[in-house]
Design a binder for these strands. Structure first.
Length: 546
DNA sequence: TCCACTAACACCTTTGAAACGC
DNA sequence: AGCGTTTCAAAGGTGTTAGTGG
């Protein structure tokens, strides 16, 4: 029933459906052990609820090309942009409401990969997840009108493999598969999120998944990048006298011109399509399931050397996963949601996968106050985030005294596959981080300076996050903390770089508060209810706008 | 020996300030 | 003086390649 309703939502019948679903959830709440939904529906914008927001991936065809070949993204110590860059077209926002748009990148599975025989293969268990960081769009917060006016580009987002990265780039492990996620957060009255009445929705485009590498493995990807990335134009060969020909001669792969590349790609696409249609994937259901998070299908491959015919199998088309919910500080207020998440191709209209569920635990993102006033410089902000350390915290969120304790650290950069342990792995106490060349003077002008070279202990960042079973919880110590870039004060913002780090006397929260704690959870990675419910509150969410 | 990784490199686009014209 | 366009150099984004280290 809920599936039908969600589908209806994508067809533009949101308001009525919402009311229905809300009613459904009210009736189901007792089964969840949730408090009765209070009459909180302030619904100031009944026709512009956040769940009405639709997001379309820009250059989806290009993304698909890469996806079919097995997208690789270079990660470097200094940080590397993604290509294709993540750009979206957003509709359905309330033109007058302020939103914050941000991206995080979560592990797509629990494997480490290697490229053998022109194929990606599982090479073992994944490394402990890196500190989860969020990339907040530099325009945030901005009105819906602003976001809808033009493409929203995250092209300045950078990826790094430097675990101590001081720039706020998103930290990834090489040879691992990742899935970017877009979050749209409704800014609260303070242009922040994480306080009361914060709503957000998450959009996941399967075709944006990628494997991080330090150098390209698949020549097809290299050619696609060269062909499509203007910055790589220098490596494009002319029809004749191809510069690359001379360079590439003697190498394993033949030199090819533009047209040859195109032809190759076309043929390879056909080949891939043929494989897909011919049941290649059927022989490797684990691959498909691991990518699409199919419930109940074994993900892990006991034989780590099993080849993966197609690392990025065609995701369902439409390919957008979507979940949307409303968080309320008062954890008792659950009015609507789905008891179980599901994946289902949505209507033709939306071309999206629509995912909607009852939050399973307090949203780290939303429960931790975040003020965007500090973004006056319009610089992108990167957030350290962490998984919760205790599954109990989520349940504790029912407690009003604890609801405010849920903080940004536990927000959605919760790993998709939270089985990793980070014990003994020092993580940078990454706080809110403004990237770019803001008007403020960087505390750490360049990587070689203080923070980058400073022992982490000096920063008070040693992390001993423990592995917990169950849903991530909330570190008790962080419960009373409230992170806010604005709290830095004007002097702080004016005199220091667009990044914050722990130091004595600093109003900033400790690393526990800001850094992502890739904690090891024991939730089954096959449990789709976890895959995309991160950040959802089991007790404090509902669908109504306020 | 293999492989992941790094840094330097050449080539290119992007960006923004200065110059210029109306 | 104000505005729009053009020019140009600096900054920064590419993949390549040789070298390093585990």
């Amino acid at each position: 029933m809920l599936q039908e309703k969600v589908s209806a939502v994508t067809e533009g019948c949101m308001s009525r459906v919402q009311a229905d679903v809300e009613a459904d959830l009210r009736t189901e709440e007792p089964r969840l052990g949730l408090s009765p939904a209070p009459t909180t529906a302030s619904a100031s914008e009944p026709d512009q609820n956040i769940e009405n927001i639709k997001v379309v991936l820009h250059e989806r065809d290009l993304w698909k090309k890469f996806h079919e070949a097995g997208t690789e993204m270079i990660i470097t110590k200094a940080g590397r942009r993604m290509f294709p860059s993540y750009k979206v077209k957003v509709t359905g926002m309330n033109p007058n409401t302020k939103y914050i748009l941000l991206i995080d990148i979560v592990p797509a599975d629990e494997h480490r990969y290697k490229f053998c025989d022109n194929k990606w293969m599982v090479a073992g268990k994944a490394e402990p997840a890196m500190p989860g960081r969020l990339y907040v769009h530099p325009d945030s917060p901005a009105t819906g009108a602003h976001w809808m006016r033009q493409l929203v580009s995250f092209q300045k987002l950078k990826l790094t493999n430097n675990h101590l990265d001081p720039f706020g780039h998103i930290i990834l492990n090489s040879m691992h598969k990742y899935q970017p996620r877009l979050h749209i957060v409704k800014a609260d009255e303070n242009n922040a999120f994480g306080s009361k009445n914060t709503a957000y929705c998450t959009h996941v485009f399967h075709e944006t998944a990628f494997i991080s590498v330090t150098s390209y493995q698949n020549h097809k990807i290299t050619q696609l990048k060269i062909e499509n990335n203007p910055f790589a134009k220098g490596f494009r060969g002319s029809e004749e006298g191809d510069l690359r020909i001379s360079r590439l001669q003697g190498k394993e792969y033949p030199a090819i011109s533009k047209n040859m590349v195109r032809q190759r790609l076309i043929s390879s696409h056909n080949h891939l399509a043929g494989k897909l249609g011919g049941g290649v994937l059927a022989g490797h259901p684990q691959v498909l399931s691991s990518y699409q998070y199919e419930p109940g299908v074994p993900l892990s491959n006991s034989d780590s050397q099993d080849p993966i015919p197609n690392l990025f199998p065609q995701s369902r088309d439409p390919s957008l996963l979507y979940h949307c919910f409303k968080h309320r500080d008062n954890a008792r207020h659950l009015e609507l949601g789905c008891k179980r998440p599901y994946l289902e191709p949505s209507s033709v209209v939306s071309e999206e996968h629509y995912f909607r569920s009852v939050p399973s635990y307090e949203s780290p993102l939303l429960s931790h106050p975040y003020r965007t006033e500090a973004f006056t410089s319009r610089e992108a902000c990167m957030y350290g985030s962490m998984e919760t350390e205790s599954g109990s915290a989520a349940r504790d969120s029912d407690d009003p005294t604890n609801s405010s304790s849920v903080n940004c650290n536990m927000w959605a950069t919760v790993q998709s596959y939270p089985r990793y342990t980070v014990e003994g792995v020092p993580y940078q106490p990454f706080a809110a981080h403004f990237t770019g060349t803001a008007a403020v003077t960087p505390v750490v002008p360049h990587p070689a300076s203080s923070i980058a070279s400073r022992p982490q202990a000096d920063l008070g960042i040693y992390n001993s996050a423990t592995v917990q079973r169950g849903l991530p919880g909330i570190p008790p110590s962080s419960s009373s903390s409230s992170f806010s870039p604005a709290a830095l004060g004007s002097r702080e913002r004016a005199d220091h770089p667009p990044m914050y780090h722990k130091r004595p006397g600093s109003p900033l929260r400790s690393h526990r508060d800001f850094s992502a704690y890739p904690t090891q959870g024991t939730i089954s990675i096959r449990d789709p209810s976890y895959q995309y419910q991160v950040g959802l509150s089991s007790t404090g969410t509902h669908w109504t706008d306020s």
